[in-house]
Amino acid sequence: MKAAIKKTYQWFDQRYEFTPLLEKNVTRKKVPCHLTWPACFGGLSLFCFLVQMFTGALLMMYYKPQPDQAFDSVMFIKSNVQMGWLVQRIHVVSANVMILLVFMHMYRVAYRKIFRSPRELHWVSGIVLLLLTLCMAFTGYLLPWTQLSYWGAKVGTEIPSAVPFIGSAIVEWVRRGHSISGDTLGFFYALHVAILPGIVILFMAMHFIMIRRTGISEPL
């Protein structure tokens, strides 16, 4: 059994050559010895994002983004789908933990001045990722279509009205109308499950590739 697995692995490895790649980047990757646990905040944020992708895909099987069905479909997930309550709870809790970790990651980077040259773009892409994370949380908050999420979305979409001249136009654009409606729900759903995750993955790729380019910061 063990030999058969090894043989199969080697057959693929001879063709794809992932062992040297794996050794270089994971198993034999050298990291600075001064790194401590707070250096994990970024990686843990990524882990939370992966949990969100996974549980989110499961929730999408039953969630219906129509105003007359959204609430009932979430209740259906929570009470009728086996372990649905767990998947839904993990999605909610992990979203909150992700925001916390993203902020802790940012505080550490700011406190240790890791953002200085040549790592300015890590900071810039990181801030974009922070804002995208908050947008994901905000759009996801509306989806259960409860009183809390409705009024949360109402207050949240009110914020751009402070922009001079075009404020109210932005509000109406975000709400897809004068007030929160089924169109808002559909728009937020599309943003939450497709558009924002796509942009997040793009910026994450930039963020990670740049870190590999510059290496992990050494303290002065």
């Binding site: 499961l58 039953y62 259906f76 009728n80 789908v81 086996q82 372990m83 649905g84 767990l86 998947v87």
Partner: peptide, 8 residues
């Protein structure tokens, strides 16, 4: 996960 993927 396995029980989630059962038919509801």
């Amino acid at each position: 996960l396995a029980s989630f993927l059962q038919r509801p």
